[in-house]
Each structure stands twice: as structure tokens, then as C-alpha cells.
């Protein structure tokens, strides 16, 4: 099992030196799902953006390696890097409404990347798009290709983005909170769809989420982030049975579950936060030496 995506000691800083990601290392194996969890601002999405080369301009990668299919993409020239990433990786974004262009029909939005970047003919690309829309269980794909995003429900839009992500048979997909904007019943359908597609296509999937419930349903392995640092790396089952880091355990204790009749909820205690902040300070000190 070699990792398809391997991130080694990645540090990303804000102009001025404030670290956003601190020495992050993680592996995503082909055919497996790796979860990235943490509270907002922990840097989960930034890892995905660093891989895809879409970091905001104020952020720079100061050290580290990102190995994608055996090549450290950070050593490539920008144009080569774009080409390489575009050919083998894809994104399923969080908000299906803002990710689709409201003034263009669905069809061209799926086929454009295939035609412009991968150089497919229009007919081949259209045929492929229709096939994928059927695969993500969209009824009447021919009609849907001609609709505008506002004519479709949130769940339908997210299906279209999933189809679009899988269109060029990517080896790596980064899903950034793909179900946060959806209702629980639709979320269940979409998660199952992403899982099925990922298994069928043996894609490596990096799954960003803040919902530990979702992690336990789709991920094989996961990393817990706090302030840009990986505090725990775990196989999924072990994590939920025996979380090792106190912060991981605290996150689990703060997650409400309807099956617990006492329903007691413990916010992450200041003691745990202090300990993890200390850990991060020590890490920063070492990094400066």
C-alpha cells in the first residue's frame, strides 16, 4: 500500500510569518478515504488548497513536500504543476450553489474542463457527462444538461459537482465539507454516493469535515488538526474506540448523539486547550531553532 498522495512536513505561513499549517504530514492511499477533522480555523481546508495549488495569495508554502503519484509537485514549474494536478486531481466543493456558474447551463459546466484542459472532443465529453449524470442517479440526464443551476435542488447540484469531479477519472479527489449545506436525509444519500463512486473508481479521497459522525461513516483513516498541527493520526475504528490525544477525546465528548439519553455534553475544557496550545508553542520553538 503505497500512498498516492503523501504530504511531508508541510508548513504554510501567512505573509509576516504566522504559521497556518505546522509541519503537517499525512498519506492518502489509492482506494481509501482519509478524513481531516478539526474546528473552524484549524487549517483543514488549507491542506486541500495547498495540494490543489489554490492557496489564497497571502499564504505561502515555506517548507515541505507534496508527493502526488510519485512526484513532488512543489519542485515543478507552476505551469507543469497546474497541468499535472489538473490531470489527476479534482475537488468536490462545499457549497454547490456558489461552485456552479449561475449564468451557464449544467452541460457545458461539466464538459468544459474535459474539452479545454484535457483536449477531449465535444462529443466524447458530452457522452461522458451523460454517463456520469446517470451514474450519480440523476433522473433524465439529457434534460438536466440543459438546465441552469437555480432550477435544481441542493442535493441535485451536489450530485452534479460529484459527477463533474469524477468526469476525468481523477486518481485523487479532495472533498471539502461536501455535505455541510445539505439536510440529514440528503446528506446520507450524497455520502453513500461519494463512497460508492470512490470505491468503484478506486480513487484516493481526502475528506475534509468537522462532523465526527460523518467521519465514522466514510473514512478509513483520519488526522485531527488543531491550529494547523496534526495532533492525532489514526485508523478510523481505533480513533472512535480509543482516541489517544486528549483533544481528540474532548472533541468526541462535545459531539451530541441522540442515542445518549442523558445527553450530557462537555465542551472542550480549558485545561485541554491549554495543553494543546502549549504543545504547539513548543513545536514553534523547535521550528525556529
Amino acid at each position: 500500500m503505497t500512498a498516492y498522495l503523501s504530504i511531508r512536513n508541510l508548513t504554510v505561513t501567512l505573509t509576516g510569518g504566522t504559521p497556518i499549517l505546522r509541519n503537517v504530514s499525512l498519506d492518502v492511499v489509492a482506494g481509501q478515504v482519509h478524513g481531516l477533522v478539526g474546528e473552524s480555523g484549524a487549517g483543514k481546508s488549507m491542506i486541500g488548497k495547498a495540494v490543489l495549488g489554490t492557496l489564497p495569495r497571502a499564504l505561502t508554502i515555506s517548507t515541505g513536500e507534496i508527493w502526488l503519484d510519485g512526484v513532488n509537485i512543489l519542485t515543478l514549474k507552476p505551469s507543469q504543476r497546474r497541468q499535472r494536478i489538473g490531470a489527476i486531481a479534482a475537488l468536490i466543493p462545499q457549497d454547490p450553489l456558489t461552485a456552479l456558474n449561475p449564468s451557464k447551463r449544467i452541460g457545458p459546466q461539466i464538459t468544459r474542463r474535459l474539452v479545454d484542459i484535457l483536449g477531449w472532443s465535444k462529443q466524447v465529453a458530452t457522452a461522458r457527462a451523460l454517463e456520469l449524470l446517470a451514474e450519480v442517479q440523476i433522473p433524465d440526464p439529457v434534460r438536466v444538461m440543459r438546465t441552469y443551476p437555480h432550477e435544481l435542488s441542493g442535493g441535485m447540484r451536489q450530485r452534479i459537482l460529484i459527477a463533474s469531479a469524477f468526469a476525468a477519472e481523477p486518481k485523487l479527489i479532495i472533498a471539502d465539507e461536501p455535505t455541510t449545506a445539505l439536510d440529514v436525509t440528503v446528506q446520507k444519500q450524497i455520502l453513500r454516493l461519494i463512497s460508492d463512486m470512490q470505491t468503484r473508481h478506486s480513487t484516493a479521497l481526502l475528506f475534509v469535515t468537522h462532523d465526527l459522525g460523518v467521519v465514522s461513516k466514510v473514512c478509513d483513516t483520519l488526522s485531527v488538526l488543531y491550529a494547523g498541527k496534526v495532533v492525532e493520526d489514526a485508523r478510523m475504528h481505533r480513533f472512535f474506540m480509543r482516541p489517544i490525544h486528549p483533544y481528540s477525546a474532548a472533541l468526541l465528548a462535545a459531539t451530541p448523539t441522540y442515542t445518549d439519553p442523558t445527553g450530557s455534553l462537555t465542551p472542550v475544557s480549558p485545561k485541554v486547550i491549554k495543553a494543546v496550545e502549549q504543545e504547539i508553542q513548543e513545536h514553534d520553538m523547535r521550528a525556529r531553532q
Binding site: V184, T185, Q187, K188, L191, D211, L212, G213, V214, V215, S216, K217, M236, H237, F240, L252, T255, T257, Y258, T259
Partner: peptide
């Protein structure tokens, strides 16, 4: 609705 909720339990 209840069945659709993903519990943090594998």
C-alpha cells in the same frame, strides 16, 4: 430522519 443521522460510532 433519525436513521439518517451519522453517529460518531463506526
Amino acid at each position: 430522519l433519525l436513521n439518517a443521522i451519522p453517529l460518531p460510532n463506526p
